[in-house]
Design a binder for these strands. Structure first.
Lengths: 244, 244
DNA sequence: TCAAAAGTGTTGCGGCTACACCCATGA
DNA sequence: TCATGGGTGTAGCCGCAACACTTTTGA
């Protein structure tokens, strides 16, 4: 931006700017990611993250929202959680040309339908198990891993977990979100106390209740609260080697 | 990336890709930021973040490291902390052309010299006090605020604070880093226990000691440890409105 | 001898973990 | 009446905030 010399854009090879999306959802209690199968070279037949070019009149955020709507078939993408992760700009990351890609992570509630087709390529929700579809096209393995790390970290100190849930949800469903993303089991009793005791995370819907799996006591229903940052954070269990 | 149609880059207006740097240091116990004064339109005479174009053969990270070396006059930029913050891509953020900018935050130890001149524009270390130089050129106010937020947050759960210090430092100096970035005072006793008790954050240099301000007991010297993430985190004091 | 900074001790509060235990429902 | 998940109670541990206090230096 603060270049002192001449401002001649032709002196530099033009860059293509794209967005790549890591779209996550919870299905059957397991974390799933939306992938598309490439139909052409390079990387034909490989799975890849959905994405596309940023158009001249839109921001990367706008392009990501547009692609998200196209790929998932959702009408109102405005309420969904869509967050920039980082930008990937290695000169050789695309063998055809110089492509700089802004990566986003999106969190959506479980979609009953498979999703309306946007692009021609086949798209599918796959369980988040990198070993089962690796290697992805381009540097998408790394992008997906970075996006997953980001989402897992943000669960600790923000309320984004509710973005995975329907407008009305039970605390058991919310707990499944944390368990699916972190890959760890949480104590239902302590989870409940923590979530209810954090102001702004969730709001109780008075009187409402719903059965979960046909069994057990009906659970009270909640809706997402207004809090953006959690104090104190809801830390994930230390998997190994915690300090002191 | 996963575009199914034709791959014609001429169908899209080319983007210029730049990097913008928020370079922080601690000087006299206060947080400072490196700014350059623009000599030409637009925003002539305004302060701006240093930065420049990404060249065809380098990544955004490479461009950021190169600009950092040029602007600060530092020879070995490799050991410094340089971290991507996010990418700014609003279509109208530069009135001249379509510019997508990848922002970075850099943490450097205090430089005695003013820094070798890179670009022609005047550059200076200014105390981090946004009201004193606002508005910056372009959308740099927001970029600088985002970078500061990122650095402040990362102090909590990583060891990057040592990036502000010389190779050998006292715990008082390290504490000044936290206080300067967070704008809050910390209890020296508790800070010491926390830092020393977190494995990998710092390593004691046996026997070494140094006076701090000419007064008081000489302080033991430490060097940066190898830990990247802190468990549990070193949380900043809740300024207001903590939960429960 | 005083001020200033380093470093150690100690106490109390609060959150979290780990259970044990009761409640409501469908099979 | 049993299995299942929701929800409440509670005891103990651990970390941290808030001090008091000692140590070592220069002025």
């Amino acid at each position: 931006m603060s270049v002192s010399g001449t401002y001649d854009k032709r002196a530099y090879e033009p860059f293509a700017v794209t967005v790549d999306l890591a779209v996550f959802t919870i299905r059957d209690g397991a974390l799933h990611v939306l992938l598309v199968e490439r139909g052409q070279e390079p990387y034909a037949g490989r799975w890849a993250l959905p994405g596309g070019f940023v158009r001249p009149d839109e921001s990367a955020e706008g392009a990501a929202a547009r692609e998200l709507a196209e790929e998932t078939g959702l009408a109102d993408v405005s309420g969904l959680h869509l967050e920039q992760v980082r930008t990937y700009s290695e000169p050789d990351r695309d063998p055809r040309m110089r492509v700089v890609s802004v990566a986003f992570a999106a969190l959506v509630p479980d979609q009953p339908e498979v999703h309306g087709g946007g692009d021609a390529a086949r798209a599918a929700w796959l369980p988040y198990r990198p070993a089962s579809y690796r290697p992805l096209a381009f540097d998408h393995d790394r992008i997906l891993a970075d996006a997953h790390d980001r989402v897992g970290g943000k669960l600790e100190y923000t309320g984004i977990a509710t973005a995975f849930c329907a407008p009305r949800f039970t605390l058991g469903e919310l707990r499944q979100v944390y368990e699916a993303v972190w890959g760890a089991e949480l104590d239902p009793a302590n989870f409940r106390r923590k979530v209810v005791g954090t102001p702004g995370l969730v709001e109780a819907i008075p009187g409402a209740a719903r059965l979960t799996g046909g069994r057990g006591k009906p659970a009270a229903l909640f809706r997402a609260g207004s809090a953006t940052t959690l104090h104190p954070p809801l830390l994930r269990p230390a998997s190994e080697g915690t300090s002191s």
